[in-house]
């Protein structure tokens, strides 16, 4: 295969893949910590965050 075409597809797929992996991993990490957080009423978030 042409090296430039391979590089174009490769750089796109690798970048998107590693970025997605990073985001999902961070999300897993945080949601493992989050349940230990104090429970808050569901509607409370929106109300309290309105500035």
């Amino acid at each position: 295969m042409d090296p430039y075409v391979a590089a174009g597809y490769g750089v796109t797929l690798v970048t998107l893949g590693s970025y997605a992996l990073r985001v999902v991993r961070r999300e897993r990490e945080l949601s493992r910590v989050a349940p230990e957080a104090p429970a808050r009423p569901v509607g409370g978030e929106e109300r309290s965050e309105r500035a």
Binding site: L16, A20, V23, R26, E27, L30, S31, E36, A37, P38
Partner: peptide, 25 residues
């Protein structure tokens, strides 16, 4: 791909905010 990343990235941001609040509390 953008939409999927956005859903997850927004969730990460929310979890980060919550974790920060929880840490403070």
């Amino acid at each position: 791909v953008y939409a999927w990343l956005l859903v997850h990235r927004v969730r990460v941001a929310r979890l980060e905010d919550e974790a920060e609040d929880a840490m403070l509390a």
